[in-house]
Design a protein around this nucleic acid. Structure first.
Lengths: 353, 353
DNA sequence: CTGTTAGCGCATTCAG
DNA sequence: CTGAATGCGCTAACAG
């Protein structure tokens, strides 16, 4: 069977099998082949089978760019995270991924490395892909980025935090409130001299610190000496270092809240090394409830955030708006948090101390 | 200045500003506008400035799909990982991201959740995007997936492991050899009764187990009772559970190698809880050298892998092949590993025991 | 250095 | 249920 019809290679063709090739092989028009793939029930079974056969014989793979151009749907969702090394984001991403992939969407990932000044450029790049939806981390986009995001008709979800003026839709929680609640819990347990250690000081960390300060002020226990922050990136090592620094400076401290579990765990390891007892000599609290936090010795008091669910909800918001062409009835979702009380802090300081 | 020319909205137009709009505003032909953006030095400064002005006034954002269709370059690299929750992959991804993003490429991410049977479908989906390059995890693609990947002209890099028959290019290391070396180190330190605990048992874990077994056989110390594996996903909790199970069954064990650091850390926490001393009562070794492993008490003996560099190298391979249209002189790169000796194992068992 | 022409591969629109 | 014509927005190829 000499098949000399392959001379349809114009100078610009990529050589890849096209829908026309499939149609020719199946003896139908290209549009029928197209329909057989997109809406099979609009094509008679006879032709459908022929077309499917041609597809698999030829090894046809649709060209996404052509499809997008013709239909102005890309089936791409852009996601902007500050970092993936920070263990919280992979969990959020999993939630997004697991919701979007079954719906036929692909995820285009970008990473700011916490360099907020690069966010605008990144958003611009991502918009070139004409994504069907965008998920951005946080609520602190600069004015230009906001405008960019608003000027497209693309649905946008801001995640991680809650804001009064969302760009579009919003899924998150109040880090301020969560941190405040944690500190109030400690205070109710009898703690007065509570410190705060934070690193990287991204917006979420900032807000957690504000929550801490608010609780301390409210009870007239606020003391600036008890607060230590670093712009360096979070790590176990840094947690150990900052802890040592603060505890030497302020040995009277009864408890220290860390802006995340990594830092807190680092401090706990340091305590173990130096024979400092937790919670007897110093109590420790973290934030995020990472998978190891329950296993630490002693288990770490912290704040748990439904990360996977947050990603899932954000993806669902997007899907809703894409499919129905209008926002869901609610455009903001508070995923909440829970203060997880474990034995790195006392539930009743006086009783035990 | 009445500007009534905006009636060029045909029924199919998306309404977005196009390059033609820019060209019209700048008083040049579309192709000149195109060139001003892609290769500025081919356009006189006079026109270039006019065009840039028009771009920013109109807020023009290029349409990626149209560009891809016309140029058959998508500037997209697809990356397939089994998981992001597994801390090793974010590090690899960072290396990929940091290399590709400055070069103008975007990352399309897919996640198999270790469901290898879904890999073929995922690859097919990703190929629809006509990526300029593909990075896949591991070397165990099934026959169909291999064929798919081979049938495209897209550059492919298999990462994490080394193989004799790469699909295209290959960056990784021998997990067999790494694990073997770790066990030999323990044996040279005087250990004889060494156990192995593994979970998830993905191909890398399998090969680490094989390396362990090989070393044990070689020294006639292999004992199937000393090996415990689980298909469940890796976690700290599981590490604790499996450790307890194996150590009760085989209290004569002198050391246990875990298929990764998470499992090993979980076991160490369990030891701490139960008052089992490390390394006196049992020595512990892990794999991956995660960021917390050095901070554990005692610091964990493990194998370090250059994850970031592996991602970087894979991305560089891709870029080389895309730019030069031919593979780099070497198509395989061994990133190596190093056995990290810390105090969760003795360097000389007899001297101390 | 600039413009004209044509086409990338597919899906929408409108007819039958 | 099927098809013809047309265009999505951009750039390669070839002039001038």
């Amino acid at each position: 069977m000499s098949n000399d019809k392959n001379n349809n290679t114009s100078s610009r063709s990529t050589g890849r099998v096209t829908l026309s090739d499939v149609a020719a092989k199946a003896g139908v028009s290209p549009i029928t082949a197209s329909r057989a793939l997109k809406s099979p029930d609009q094509v008679s079974e006879k032709l459908r089978v022929k077309i499917y056969d041609a597809v698999s014989e030829l090894g046809y793979i649709p060209n996404h760019a052509a499809r997008s151009l013709a239909s102005s749907e890309t089936k791409i969702i852009s996601v902007i995270f500050p970092s993936l090394s920070n263990a919280v984001f992979p969990d959020v991403l999993d939630g997004i991924h697991d919701t979007l992939t079954p719906a036929g969407y692909r995820i285009l990932l970008a990473n700011t490395h916490y360099a907020t000044d690069q966010e605008e450029g990144l958003v611009r790049t991502l918009l070139e892909q004409s994504p069907d939806g965008i998920i951005v981390t946080g609520i602190d986009q600069n004015e230009n980025t906001r405008k960019l995001l608003l000027s497209t008709n693309t649905p946008v979800v801001q995640i991680m935090e809650l804001t009064d003026s969302p760009i579009d839709m919003n899924v998150g929680l109040s880090h301020f409130q969560a941190s405040y609640d944690l500190v109030r819990h400690l205070q109710n347990s009898g703690y007065k001299k509570i410190g705060f250690i934070g690193a990287r000081m991204d917006p979420r960390s900032q807000r957690r610190m504000e929550g801490y300060k608010h609780a301390m002020h409210e009870t007239s226990n606020m003391n600036e000496r008890y607060v230590l922050t670093s712009q360096s990136n979070t790590s176990f090592k840094l947690g150990a270092k900052l802890f040592t620094q603060l505890f030497i400076e302020c040995p009277e401290l009864e408890a220290i809240c860390f802006s995340n579990d990594d830092l807190a765990a680092g401090a706990m390891f340091e305590c173990n090394r130096r024979g400092i007892r937790i919670p007897e000599d110093i109590s420790i609290a973290g934030f995020n409830d990472l998978n190891f936090s329950e296993e630490l010795l002693p288990p770490l008091t912290t704040v748990s955030i439904p990360l996977y669910e947050m990603g899932k909800k954000a993806a669902e918001y997007l899907l809703h708006k894409i499919v129905n062409r209008e926002a869901p009835s609610s455009i903001q979702h508070d995923v909440g948090y829970s203060v997880i009380k474990r034995s790195s802090t006392y539930s009743d300081l006086k009783k035990r101390k």
